[in-house]
Design a protein around this nucleic acid. Structure first.
Length: 287
DNA sequence: AAGAGGCCCTGATAGC
DNA sequence: TGCTATCAGGGCCTCT
């Protein structure tokens, strides 16, 4: 669900509110996430000072002043909510993701600061919180991940080499975090539409020009989505309580049977499944 | 080793 | 109204 742009919005919002602050107390109300939160977790975070909040791919990272980290993933349904102390008992909080109010069910982690608290909610429990002891351990966690689309090494040479002899559709590669990290189902669909590439085509069949377009549109669409505050396909709110706006720009995602939006293209958007993920494309202009 | 497929989980919605 | 089936922004694991 949250892809790179949405996680970036959460990161920016969170950074403004909790950087340089000391964690007073951590309360776990439900330890069952993708990885069970160990009993010592609360103790490890207590009294840590958050030097910086950063992001890699779809991962949020709390960088503590003593060199340790907390790695957070939102999975499909993870949301982060902020509650100010004055309103501790009111649901007038602003939400970073997905809900205008704090949900009553499925709250898992509560991180308390002097003046506010941060609550993590995750109905489907595909997300996680992991304590990381040091930089090496953090780097190891990311070892298997490919570059973000923004990185310099996500270039033509990389794609051409990676796609050599690959008998798998390009859509699956855009979703494969080992190849490129940060792209999810929405943006994979949109990138292929903008590139005029059929999602079912084998990666090895792509031309040099196709690869150039994929690189260029991956960067531009993610940048644009961040600029627009992410995509709100449910109730996404940033820290100011504002929705993202990028969903208004979707050209194919969730547009099954609607007219292709490319100038003068007579096509209609089709929906198929690739590796169990819904895939939207125009079968006229996406060759 | 690449590629296909299943699985983790709850909730919203569509269809009967 | 109320049931069931399907699908949802992700990623890991196993099998061939």
């Amino acid at each position: 669900m949250p892809e790179l742009p949405e996680v970036e919005i959460v990161k920016q919002s969170l950074a403004k509110k909790i950087q340089q602050k000391k964690i007073k107390r951590v309360i776990i109300t439900n330890r069952n996430l993708r990885f069970k939160i160990p009993p010592k977790f609360e103790e490890l975070l207590q009294n840590k000072i958050i030097k910086k909040v950063t992001r890699f791919s779809k991962y949020l990272i709390l960088n503590f002043s003593d060199g340790s980290f907390c790695l957070i993933h939102l999975g499909m349904s993870g949301t982060i909510h902020l509650i100010y102390k004055d309103n501790f008992n009111k649901f007038t909080n602003t939400s970073f993701y997905n809900s205008p109010t704090l949900p009553k069910k499925h709250n898992h982690v509560e991180i308390q600061f002097k003046d506010l608290k941060v609550i993590y909610n995750d109905p489907r429990r595909f997300g996680f919180f992991i304590f990381i002891n040091n930089k090496n351990e953090l780097i190891n966690r990311f070892n298997h991940l490919g570059p973000e689309p923004f990185f310099k090494n996500f270039d033509l040479k990389y794609l051409l080499k990676y796609f050599l002899n690959k008998k798998k559709d390009i859509k699956s590669f855009l979703l494969d975090q080992k190849f490129v990290s940060g792209i999810g189902n929405i943006y994979a669909n949109e990138i292929l539409f903008l590139s005029k590439i059929n999602p079912t085509i084998y990666a090895m069949k792509l031309t040099k020009n196709d690869c150039k377009k994929i690189i260029s549109f991956s960067k531009s669409i993610l940048k644009k989505a961040i600029k627009k505050g992410g995509s709100s396909i449910r109730d996404f709110k940033n820290t100011s309580g504002q929705s993202g706006n990028f969903q208004k720009e979707f050209k194919v995602y969730q547009r099954e049977n609607l007219n292709c939006l490319r100038n003068k293209c007579p096509g209609k958007i089709k929906k198929i499944f690739i590796s169990n993920r819904s895939t939207f494309f125009c079968n006229i202009c996406q060759k």
